[in-house]
Design a protein around this nucleic acid. Structure first.
Lengths: 156, 156
DNA sequence: TAAGATCCCATGATATCCCATAAAAACCCA
DNA sequence: TGGGTTTTTATGGGATATCATGGGATCTTA
């Protein structure tokens, strides 16, 4: 169960639909989430997407703050306010919303990039740049000693 | 558990398929991974391949960072974005993707080299050069006293 | 009622399944 | 030990299924 792996880029049709890559659909089906959970990434021009596994990860972050506290409210608004759950049609497609368009800069093509427990939705060219950068960082993180982020929930 | 040992060179057919060496398939079957996990090596023009053992190696690296953090995202993109999980057909073959072609320079033949817990996919000529180089390094490391780091390079 | 969303079917490209074959390896039994 | 026999393997290729994509028709809802 490798989760979301590899990346694919698909065309956006005249109606604003894209096919979700079949391997990703298979992961979603196994996860059991009805539809797709999408949320704008706070640190890059991509949209995070996934099923229950992603959702529970976000929930965990929220749980670190006491309900009714201003912090919890702020975070909840930030997280859920920036999210949506597009339906997946019978052919495995979703509609790309204006929110996704604006946040990612997507026009006519969409890159889906697997990150294991979730995947990201990118404008293809932006994704290429981001990945080149990420690979440099990854090399430094794996060989050098970048301080690993602590495991419990902390603000972004 | 012998793991992946020795090396083999097989032909790529007109449809872009190669047979995975039978001994490697036996190891994969024992490992229990459905399909094959592949990731471009950051160090050389080869693709690392394996099953659960390789995957958990990568997962462990990721687990050092908190999910949803920029660090985790970057690492996950670099690792999973450069990965794929080709299916193994009923005859023990996989399709060589464009990603593998580009990273390795493979055209019509493929060399599979066992490294124990994983194996590598090479363009045959590049593999010969790499092995010669690795053997030189191995010799230096054995005669001098360099910190132990497993190296490829075993006789056929 | 008109724009947008959803459903449904068509189609070409590609991947997958399945069977055939030849060569090599393993096996067997005198 | 050796030669003949069976099994496994690598490889080719035809048939079939899957997938991304396009577009018409129907349904929603503002």
């Amino acid at each position: 169960m490798a989760g979301f792996v590899s990346h694919f880029t698909n065309r956006l049709d005249a109606k604003g639909r894209v096919s979700i890559p079949a391997p990703f659909r298979a992961v979603l089906a196994r996860d059991g989430f009805e539809g797709l959970y999408c949320i704008a990434s706070p640190h890059c021009a991509a949209v995070d997407a996934g099923g229950n596994e992603l959702l529970s990860e976000i929930q965990t972050r929220l749980d670190a703050f006491a309900k009714l506290s201003p912090d919890h409210d702020a975070l909840a608004v930030a997280l859920f306010g920036a999210s949506e759950t597009p339906k997946i049609d019978g052919d495995g497609r979703i509609m790309i919303s204006d929110m996704v368009r604006e946040h990612t800069g997507i026009t006519d093509q969409v890159t889906f990039a697997g990150l294991g427990y979730k995947f990201q939705i990118w404008e293809p060219e932006k994704f290429r740049e981001h990945r080149a950068e990420a690979q440099k960082r990854a090399l430094a993180m794996l060989s050098g000693q970048v301080a690993p982020t602590p495991l419990p929930g902390e603000p972004a």
